[in-house]
């Protein structure tokens, strides 16, 4: 466990280093000039040059990247070009909203997905199973903004149960969390169904039935706990999928998280923010995958860490 963890941590750090390098290269070669954005259209060539020098953007690429890395090691993500604030502070102020949304979404998708998967496994081969599995296909085939706008239209515009957008109360959280939850649920439903079917076939289930336990008790007390754990262990991997979807859902619902921050920064070519959010997202993905790999052998001792 110790050496494995150490190796994985080093690997993760290298991956993050690679992500930072590639993002930096992409943003360095991009045709849009951030200095022009800051200086405005009417700025003279001299002003543009002085801003460029101030930001260190006149330096060679490797010097710029070296400086960035040096700051990064000290936890300094640089300063936003346009907002004149520390990027780390900006991200820290937006992160709680995103984490809240993510937590809500995970609850939604687990409840929906696991329920669908269990029901489909129990009614395996019947019409209900087919309907549920087709539904799970629809949820993985729908883009976030379509589901978001649909929920918005039905529950906010039409029924007026929830606010149209914004942030602050529990009611604000429901629709965006449900959007992400519905989209993720199909994936869980499929995994839960096959996991449940595998467990229901196992010998110990037959033994439990043979010794006279009722079907309900066998399913709830014997099959479910065994079937559910490997599925729940996948939450880590799910985090990566969330980090992608967050930009869209936050923009549909006006949710003030890091997705919105990134989206605004992209439109204004505010490179330090784009870098920062990309790195934070990559961090979340790497940590999520690491957690998934670490949890798996705890649940199933047959899986060995190598």
């Amino acid at each position: 466990m110790g050496p494995y963890l150490l190796r994985r941590l080093v690997q993760s750090a290298l991956i993050l280093l690679g992500v930072s390098f590639i993002t930096f290269v992409l943003l360095y070669v991009l045709p849009a000039d951030p200095v022009r954005q800051i200086a405005g259209r009417s700025a003279t060539a001299a002003t543009v040059e002085s801003i460029r020098r101030q930001l260190g953007l006149d330096q060679p690429f490797l010097v710029q990247y070296g400086r960035y890395l040096f700051g990064l090691i000290q936890g300094d993500l640089g300063r936003s070009y346009l907002q004149k604030t520390e990027v780390a502070a900006l991200i820290a102020s937006r992160l709680p909203a995103t984490l809240l949304l993510m937590a809500g979404a995970i609850v939604c998708e687990l409840v929906l997905g696991l329920a669908m998967g269990i029901a489909a496994a129990l009614w395996r081969g019947r019409a209900a199973d087919q309907v549920l599995m087709t539904t799970s296909f629809v949820t993985v085939s729908a883009p976030q903004f379509v589901v978001g706008l649909l929920l918005l239209y039905v529950f906010a515009v039409w029924l007026r149960w929830f606010p149209i957008g914004g942030y602050g109360t529990f009611a604000h959280l429901v629709l965006p969390a449900l959007t992400l939850g519905i989209l993720g649920s199909g994936w869980y439903a499929r995994m839960m169904r096959s996991s449940m079917i595998d467990v229901l076939r196992a010998d110990f289930i037959r033994t439990a039935r043979a010794k006279g336990l009722g079907r309900g008790r066998v399913v709830l007390r014997h099959a479910l706990p065994n079937a559910i754990l490997p599925v729940i262990a996948m939450i880590g991997i799910d985090i990566g999928i969330f980090m992608g979807g967050i930009v869209v859902v936050e923009s549909v619902f006006g949710w003030p998280g890091i997705g919105q921050l990134a989206w605004q920064a992209i439109q204004r070519v505010d490179i330090p923010i784009i870098m920062g959010v990309t790195l934070v997202s990559a961090c979340a993905i790497v940590i999520g995958n690491l957690l998934a790999d670490l949890i798996a052998p705890m649940i199933d001792p047959r899986i060995r860490l190598r």
């Binding site: 943003l27 045709p31 992608g244 990309t278």
Partner: peptide, 23 residues
């Protein structure tokens, strides 16, 4: 394959939006 692993850690949609917005 290490490069592929690295690309897996990229938030794909964010990267795509970034690239598409820039070009």
């Amino acid at each position: 394959m290490r490069f592929t692993d690295l690309m897996m850690a990229f938030p794909a949609l964010l990267l795509a939006i970034c690239l598409a917005a820039i070009f």
